[in-house]
Design a protein around this nucleic acid. Sequence first.
RNA 1: GACCCCAUCGUCUAGUGGUUUAGGACACCGCCCUUUCAAGGCGGCAACACGGGUUCAAAUCCCGUUGGGGUCGCCA
Length: 466
Amino acid sequence: MNVVTRFAPSPTGFLHIGGARTALFNWLFARHHGGQFLLRIEDTDRKRSTSEAMDAILAGLRWLELDWYGDEFYQSRGIERHKATAQELLRDGKAYLCYCTPEELTEMRETARKNGRSMRYDGRWRDRDPADAPKGVDPVVRLKTPLDGVTIVDDQVQGPVCVENTQLDDMILLRSDGTPTYMHSVVVDDHDMGVTHIIRGDDHLTNAARQTQLFSAFGWEVPTFAHIPLIHGPDGKKLSKRHGALGVEAYRDMGYLPDALRNYLLRLGWSHDDEELISTEQAVSWFDLDAVGQSPSRMDFAKLESVNSHYIQQEDSAKLVELTIRRIVESQAAPVTLEAQGRILSGLVGLRQRAKTINELAEAAMIYVNRPVFPLDNAKAARLLENDGGTLVLDSAKLLITIDDWSEETIEAAVRKLAESKSLGFGKVAQPLRAALTGSNASPSIFEVMKALGKNETIARLNAVP
RNA sequence: GACCCCAUCGUCUAGUGGUUUAGGACACCGCCCUUUCAAGGCGGCAACACGGGUUCAAAUCCCGUUGGGGUCGCCA
């Protein structure tokens, strides 16, 4: 089966989470079937389209590693073609000129609503003699849609959806200024681009019926539709900014990995038995429309974090260090020395195990960037150095300075021996050391920290305790 | 309001008429491990919206109710 999918965002805002999932599903579906995934920017609304939004969408897609086939299409470049096809329909008597004023339309809408009908435009110019055309009024071009019968959208996710044709009015193809509408442009473009599968949000389901009518008017084959349920906020209501209706770059800034976000989004509304952590390769081989759920799902940051932490465990060390350092530099607006970078890499095992996001990782890694400042801000840590805590730290320093083989094992053996010699529980020694070394009462293993810090820095930090 | 879609633990979901005391994951709770915090291991809590049918048998099929969502622009 030849498969061509497309993602068609309008550049009026960033690439939000729902759009990202739509793009992912299209990408996956095309990959799975060995087809092509195309990108089309729907920029026909010049007033609302911005180049910033366009850049944000492209950057978001690239960050998510959802690459599209060939160059992206710009809908605005097809305007002449869209106009021409509408004229064809007009010539063939499948469309007509309508001279209704906006006021008339508003009135019609109100009447329709009052009478409990969904049909808005009453088709008053459908069969009217063009000679009746009022002077000085620019007409719109409307499609002559079927007056009776039903239009069936055989949706791959929702199943067959039947809409009575009496519910659908004659849609506008060309505005009175001659420019094509979205409904018209989409159909022409999808046909011209050879799109075989239209996978998009559920909010377009009712559009599918209208677009089907247009495809039929042209005598074109209707693509297969698949409307995926929308993502809602944690409360089941429409996704708001507070709930995560953010651009994907915001997710990057919150410290999520693209692989993790993709995995999370994939599982939101799609499943493969009990699989939770799914690699891209597996996703490509498993993904199909029949496993897409029919009900809307809710955004769950806790689950996203959990998935993200798994990907942080799996991420390549060098890459992880790079991301961590970049984040530190961004937030501290200060460089990280090569020495500190080496320490972070050395202590990465313990750091990554405790981090759910890159941001948490960057924060935890600060113990390798800055020395603790006394008196410590952390009250619990400060308390660990009170009484004989400070003495234990200095005793440890004296002992550790004699160690030549600076390995975790040797360091641990030495510290354990010290605790034993003083008849102290191991924790009694370890906690003050932790406070002296990291300025905190919680950190990775102190032996790992000492190893990563190196002997000189370790001794220096221990001796710095007042 | 009209039309369309949806309905299994708090959340994401498995389940396609009997294999189900409804499974997994996240979250939550407890225990273990333990130098702290995590991670990990073990265990626990927790759902078929409701009402009618169909059938020997229904979470699974049908109808209705309720609830949620979407659409109703010369926006996309």
